[in-house]
């Protein structure tokens, strides 16, 4: 059973790590569309999977958060990845299963998973 004691241990571990990090501009940001359209299409497990993977890999310069309706509801769940100094990449028709590859190839490895992007979807 997860207890507050466990949270304290997690805090002690993170306190050392957080202070070593930059403050935002150098971070990779993952945004998942979480309006009614996104949620209904399955955005929540996608976001949860990004959180799990980033936590499990201990990635220290990645934030996972949410955004509203991006305006392309037919492509939901939609995920935007912002790597500092690079152009935004929009992944569409996302599923929990696609998350691992985006984390490994794009966020860690630096190469975009083209076949999941909106560009490949429209062609």
């Amino acid at each position: 059973m997860k207890s507050l004691e466990e949270l304290k241990a997690l805090r002690d571990k993170l306190q050392g790590e957080v202070s070593l990090r930059g403050d935002g501009d150098d971070k990779t940001k993952v945004l998942v569309g979480m309006a009614t359209c996104g949620i209904a299409a399955g955005a929540r497990p996608v976001l949860a999977e990004f959180v799990e993977q980033v936590a499990a890999r201990g990635l220290k310069n990645v934030t996972v958060s949410q955004t509203g309706c991006i305006g392309i509801c037919q492509f939901e769940p939609v995920v935007e990845v912002f790597v500092p100094g690079k152009e935004k990449v929009t992944y569409v028709n996302m599923s929990k299963e696609k998350v691992a590859r985006i984390v490994a190839d794009h966020i860690v490895g630096g190469s975009i998973v083209s076949e999941y992007t909106i560009g490949s979807c429209q062609s």
């Binding site: 507050l4 949270l7 304290k8 997690l10 805090r11 993170l14 957080v18 799990e52 936590a55 990635l59």
Partner: peptide, 16 residues
């Protein structure tokens, strides 16, 4: 209160 300054948005905290 327990986190004492560690952001609640940390992925490991969210997973917890």
């Amino acid at each position: 209160h327990v986190l004492d300054g560690v952001p609640i948005s940390e992925p490991e905290v969210m997973a917890y």
